[in-house]
Design a protein around this nucleic acid. Structure first.
Lengths: 351, 351
DNA sequence: ATCACCGGTGGGAGCGCTCCCACGGTACCT
DNA sequence: AGGTACCGTGGGAGCGCTCCCACCGGTGAT
């Protein structure tokens, strides 16, 4: 059983060649079986599979990567410090969807943080070495150079949340416009007359879209727009507090607030409480994200839920397509691939 | 500049050979420069570095991995579902330490979850393919087959928290014994007479050590041990509640509780509150972990802090040593490498 | 002058795989 | 009968790197 070749490699892992010898076939045939090619007879396939099992053969990924020029790995790149990543349930949910969609694939998922300059430099190096077949980009700011770097390196990438209406990368997003609109329509349906909006950071495209949705709901219901009712926030609790204070000073008659995130809604709630406004009797409050905060707030917060796990799944879909399309080369269509998923308003006692 | 070979590879990434041609040296020399070998003259080194810069050369990792039989990547394996990973600040801190220690290395860190059977199977496959040079194992239960798999595959690994006193893998742990002991000594110093202990899951070695520390503190102070004062928990809040209820029924006279984790302490606190016992006046309470919960509890919880970030750093140290030792082969010493780091008692108002 | 030695260097021989071309055989057409 | 098509198959030629041996010239010892 040994010495069918020059060097007897007793200790090492079995190679394709050894499997081939064992199964009494050629190297090419084993490769075909391993890679699930249909152009193999059933008998041969069975023989090879037996040999693989007996020898405990596992393909050498490095050799495969070198020969085939692919790595069978994709990276989820988080351009944030670890702490923020852990703080927000958003990532956890997304990761769940991504993992699920990937689980019947050969692809391995790598999680890479790039929170500071040093980490970013390492990431650039990593990407330049083409150590992944594709990249999932989450929570990217408008001026981030990462997307351009990826295009330049010709690495397939999918972005969660387009950077603008003219996003060139494939993207998956929830319907920020529709979500905001439904939130405001809900408030109007409850009889609110003066609905304020605390926006997110306006350099985040999704935040802009929520403002658009807010405006559309108001106009659609025949209200006139009052820019005094729109106050920019920054997605933080403190930002929510400041915005609420400002709004209250400007328009003490407001009877509803649509906050661009649950965290900001929490800040707003504090101020309303301090000012003696009852929720929802005096002022109705609606948030965005339907995070754990929303459920635990007092009173529980009405919020717009995004299907984050589903978004993770769809991002993988897009990315895998993108990777597959690129493989045989030049033919790939340039049609933009942008997915938008519906949101859902979760009504609770705050409205 | 082109056509110095048969095929002009205009589009592709530059190779070692091309850098060599550009610098007017041989392939081997460029390799030496890239890998920081000292056996290169300064002049040659400079020439090669210039060529590398001009061509934007980045080594092909796959080729290197194939030729050198290493991957320059290590995995942090979490045998838990993602959700738990995100829920506990433990992992976040550990990751921070690991990332920091790795940042001046070529090593890439991969985060791999293995929460269910399917993921575990994929992981086994991944490890069998030797796609990483080493593995960091966190939060492993006593009966987990993963450590054995790793030994069998001869993959260097470091475990956080030994599985038993006879742990064979290198490990990094905090001083559970000493931490528990200091917590109980603190309670005794405050004049407590009947100190109860809610343990963690006793199939976790660290939890056993905490029990040992609890006993030692009592004996050291001349107290006699009362097994009635020891009640097993399971690290959950609900487990803490149950244990506290049980303890109160058995020993209504107890005046202090040392819980094996902050989360269990939180459960215990609820029961104590419901039973009308004031903290710390009637019953003093001490937790373990010094997590965010401890700081936010009412009253703030005295707790034992583990240097988790430091543990992450030390795990990387050990692992890199382990990997380096294994490289030239057979010579590596079998001395056990077990690191134990000191804990610190953080006194707050609950005691 | 001769030799051993060593720092610095070039390049052959792989690492284990995929890709692809070539080959023999069978089935179906003319 | 010969021709054509394809299927299943074997194996050569790389992929880009590291490892290692051989080589060159300069140095110091003999």
């Amino acid at each position: 059983m040994a010495s069918h070749g020059a060097r007897s490699r007793s200790g090492g892992r079995p190679t394709l060649e050894e499997v081939a010898a064992r199964a009494g076939v050629g190297r090419g045939t084993v490769s075909r079986v391993i890679n699930g090619s249909p152009r193999v007879s059933d008998a041969t396939r069975a023989a090879v599979e037996a040999a693989v099992a007996e020898l405990g053969y596992v393909p050498n990924t490095a050799a495969r990567a070198l020969a085939a020029n692919r790595t069978d790995a994709i990276a989820l790149v988080v351009p944030e410090p670890e702490t923020r990543f852990f703080a927000e349930p958003y990532f956890s949910d997304m990761l769940k969807g991504v993992g699920a969609e990937l689980s019947d694939t050969q692809m391995q998922l790598l999680l890479i943080f790039a929170g500071n300059d040093r980490e970013r430099a390492r990431l650039a190096q990593y990407l330049a070495a083409h150590r992944v077949d594709g990249v999932l980009l989450v929570s990217v700011h408008a001026d981030d150079p990462l997307p351009d770097l990826l295009s330049q390196l010709e690495i397939p990438a999918v972005i969660s949340g387009p950077r603008s209406a003219a996003e060139t990368l494939p993207s998956v997003d929830s319907d920020n416009y529709g979500g905001a609109r439904s939130a405001v329509e809900h408030l109007l349906a409850r009889g609110c007359r003066a609905v304020a909006h605390i926006t997110g950071r306006l350099d985040v495209y999704g935040a802009q879209r929520r403002v658009d949705g807010y405006r559309a709901a108001l106009l659609g219901a025949g209200h006139e727009l009052d820019e005094q009712l729109i106050q920019p926030g920054d997605f933080t609790e403190e930002g929510g507090r400041r915005a609420m204070t400002e709004l209250l000073a400007r328009r003490p008659d407001l009877d509803a607030v649509f906050a661009g995130s649950d965290v900001m809604a929490a800040g707003a709630r504090q101020v309303l409480r301090e000012e003696g406004r009852r929720i929802p009797d005096d002022v109705a409050l609606v948030g965005y994200d339907d995070s754990a905060i929303a459920r635990h707030m007092d009173p529980p917060l009405t919020s717009v839920r995004q299907p984050i796990e589903e978004m993770g799944r769809r991002m993988i879909d897009l990315l895998l397509t993108e990777i597959a399309d690129r493989r045989p080369a030049v033919t790939r269509e340039l049609e933009r691939r942008q997915v938008v998923l519906a949101t859902e308003l979760v009504a609770r006692r705050s409205s």
